[in-house]
């Protein structure tokens, strides 16, 4: 574990960790608000937005992609409302139809456009390109203090680290707002909290995480990281602060273990090729959730519903 690790595995692993943590943090609150599928929805809806942004600008840059994703989200909300009202269809079905249709549209658009020069095709949209985010200039741990080598770090690393830091900072700064408006919105509003803005802010934060992570690791891991680590963490504790800490730990373990298993697991089993890191990370997070369901100390509470005598 030396030069080769730093060059080929360190940066993808870190990007995976930052992406997983950035999604898991807002995921805690989305799950408690019963909006867990918003992460799923966002990761689907952003695809056509990102593709259109690429077609218009010709580059895979962060700002246009973010704008494209934002426009796509607005279009999605308008479509859901239109289907619900004009078609008289229940909101859940209207959302499902809209998200999958937009995602499918994005896939078709992607297939038709010439994106051969960049990391933007159907495979990357689903699974990202984690394995290719390597650090060519590195030749060992010493590169971590070598300014020339550091300048050649893949830009995804800085982007994902920034987003992760932003999400972490927002979670800490607005902790009381998030907790109070998630637990008891009416009370929070009576206290003078801007509950609508808090809800919108949370979804926006989730969207920023999703778009940044989508760029680096694809939509599979985005969906998994919004839900699996927080859901597993909920089963470990009855305190929200502790839950969020567990969710971060599970996200980190999923990213590191998933990356290692994808790269070396098949070799240990005698196969010759590595498997998709994003796929393996999502799988590991799912296994952690499964284990938590079976063995975690507070598993009895989740999904128990409201107290039986509540109306």
């Amino acid at each position: 574990m030396g030069a080769e690790f730093v060059q080929f595995s360190l940066t993808p692993m870190l990007i995976g960790v930052f992406a997983a943590v950035a999604c898991a943090l807002p995921g805690n609150f989305l799950i408690l608000r019963r909006q867990a599928l918003i992460g799923d929805a966002i990761s689907h809806v952003v695809l056509p937005g990102i593709v259109v942004a690429f077609l218009l600008t010709g580059t895979v840059a962060a700002i246009p992609m973010m704008l494209g994703a934002g426009v796509a989200a607005v279009v999605a909300v308008a479509l859901i409302e239109a289907i619900r009202r004009l078609g008289g269809i229940e909101p859940g079905a209207a959302m499902g139809v809209t998200f999958t249709t937009l995602f499918a549209g994005g896939v078709l658009l992607l297939e038709q456009s010439d994106t051969s020069g960049v990391h933007l095709d159907v495979e990357h949209a689903l699974m990202g390109n984690l394995e290719s985010l390597i650090w060519f200039q590195a030749d060992g741990w010493a590169s971590l203090v070598d300014p020339v080598a550091l300048a050649a770090l893949p830009p995804e690393l800085g982007r994902m680290a920034t987003v992760c830091g932003l999400v972490l900072l927002a979670t800490i700064l607005f902790w009381r707002w998030l907790v109070m408006s998630t637990f008891d919105e009416g009370f929070a509003q009576a206290m003078g909290l801007p509950v609508s803005a808090i809800g919108l802010g949370l979804v926006t934060l989730a969207a920023i995480s999703a778009v940044a992570a989508f760029d680096a690791v694809g939509s599979i891991i985005v969906i998994a990281m919004f839900i699996c680590p927080p859901a597993a963490a909920r089963l470990m504790t009855e305190r929200l602060g502790v839950q969020v800490a567990w969710s971060v730990a599970f996200a980190v373990v999923s990213a590191v273990l998933g990356y290692v298993l994808a790269g070396y697991g098949p070799l240990w089993l005698g196969a010759s090729n590595a498997v998709s890191a994003a796929g393996m990370i999502a799988t590991v997070s799912g296994v952690i959730l499964g284990l938590a369901c079976l063995f975690a100390p507070h598993r009895a509470r989740i999904g128990a519903g409201r107290s039986p005598d509540a109306v």
Binding site: L32, V179, T182, F183, D184, G186, F187, A190, M191, R234, T237, E238, R239, L240, V242, Q243, R301, I302, A304, G305, R306, S307, A310, V311
Partner: peptide
Amino acid sequence: YVPQRASVDWDFPA
């Protein structure tokens, strides 16, 4: 303000 008890999810980790 004391809202209706049934208006919140008592499974909340608190």
